[in-house]
Design a binder for these strands. Structure first.
Lengths: 229, 229
DNA sequence: CGTGGCCTTGATAAAGTTCAAGAGCCGTGG
DNA sequence: CCACGGCTCTTGAACTTTATCAAGGCCACG
């Protein structure tokens, strides 16, 4: 069955015993969502978690005035909503699709049953949660200790690293969404991109293509060693 | 032996089988630290994690310019440094004692061996990590979507909740440390406390005692419904 | 009794947000 | 095929929030 093929490819389900793949596939429900659909909202009661199969999902917090902070953008193979499985209550943030999405849904109690049976599965889950904590610590560090140009520089370098440290980047999200990842607003992001271009750190087609022209300075900016003038 | 008595009282080690307490006590090393001592630094290689027995420890990130963001303050019974155990590499933040501290140290490989044997232990650990993720999401939300007065109001309410929703609070840390928890600096904190007092939301002895005088307004402030004038 | 840490206050500066306006782009429907 | 509306992005000006720098007070501890 091809759900099994899919789950064997993702990190959360690596190195399990054959039998456990059967068990897993037994508890999975598939769920499809349209573009822009809310999968769950903060404070909703949580009865399980999801794994994206196709499409992307943003996990975010929003303020009463409508500002949004994106915590993650997840794609195929990424689990989400799993925190609530282990704290037993509500989702700590909201999830909305960026595109049409196919997902696998794992009901909470069934999944906990499986975790009790397979130590490899729990170690994988511990590793997923730990990596998330690590990412959150660094997001907190960025928000609290760096200014927006530094965060943007770090993000551009991160995109470059994901792409073999290539100097050409293509943003796979809108600038408005990027602003929300960086903890700022589109206006501020736009101004900083203009400055970076003017000071020859980057070049852009005005849309989603960027070229890193001065990697050294971007690194210095990300570390807070220099500032834009 | 009294290490066993101690560990049976803390959430991470609840509901284990008798035999596992023996195993745990077999791998534990005790470590003592003086006041102000650095237990580990960000990027140090991690070979295990700690549980505080007495004294308090702050977990923090710091910037090149010396500003600090406190991520947690942990006390007796709290585990810390456990993220690195499951991501396999370095500590994502630094740890320093606030007072003289006794701790238990759990070597990484030994502990992973135990986790594989006892599903209850891994579920407990999953729950600890999940609660931390929840707290981090809310810290991120605060830093990104709220202003300092809102964060302070939320913190005061949190202290009150911990104390049976009593109106009298005693801060158990310095105001400089509180500023660092809130993601700001002492000067700003001081000004905001002055404003809150002037507007009769709180009263203070100028040191570490506070009295909540207008809980409703503090709640509104924390939710961003109102502002200080 | 002096020194250093912590806290407060003021003046100033920097960073970011808000508000408003307008340009460019895309898909829809007449 | 073109016009329209909606959306994203950019830019400017005013404003708000917070940080920085500097000074002084208070208190505890040697």
């Amino acid at each position: 069955m091809d759900i099994i093929n899919f789950i064997t490819t993702i990190p959360l389900f690596q190195n399990l015993e054959e039998k456990n793949y059967q068990d897993l596939s037994g508890i999975i429900r598939t769920r499809k969502f349209k573009k822009g659909e809310i999968i769950f909202s903060e404070y909703d009661e949580a009865d399980g978690f999801y794994v994206a199969v196709s499409g992307r999902v943003k996990i975010f917090k929003s303020s009463p005035e409508g500002k949004e902070q994106i915590l993650h953008i997840f794609g195929p193979g990424d689990p989400f909503g799993e925190i609530a499985v282990f704290t037993g209550k509500n989702f700590p943030a909201s999830a909305q699709t960026l595109e049409a999405c196919d997902t696998l849904f794992f009901p909470k109690n069934d999944f906990i049953g499986l975790i009790k049976k397979d130590p490899a599965l729990s170690l994988n889950m511990l590793s997923v949660l730990s990596m998330r904590l690590k990412r959150f610590s660094s997001l907190i560090e960025d928000l609290s200790l760096k200014e927006v140009p530094g965060r943007l520089a770090a993000y551009l370098l991160y995109l470059s690293d994901r792409n073999d440290s290539c100097d050409e980047l293509i943003l796979d999200i809108s600038k408005t969404q990027l602003a929300s990842i960086l903890g700022t607003i589109p206006e501020t992001l736009s101004r900083i991109l203009t400055k970076m271009t003017r000071e020859n750190l980057i070049e852009s087609d005005g849309k989603r293509k960027f070229l890193i022209k001065d990697r050294e300075s971007l690194i210095d900016l990300a570390e807070g060693e220099i500032k834009l003038s």
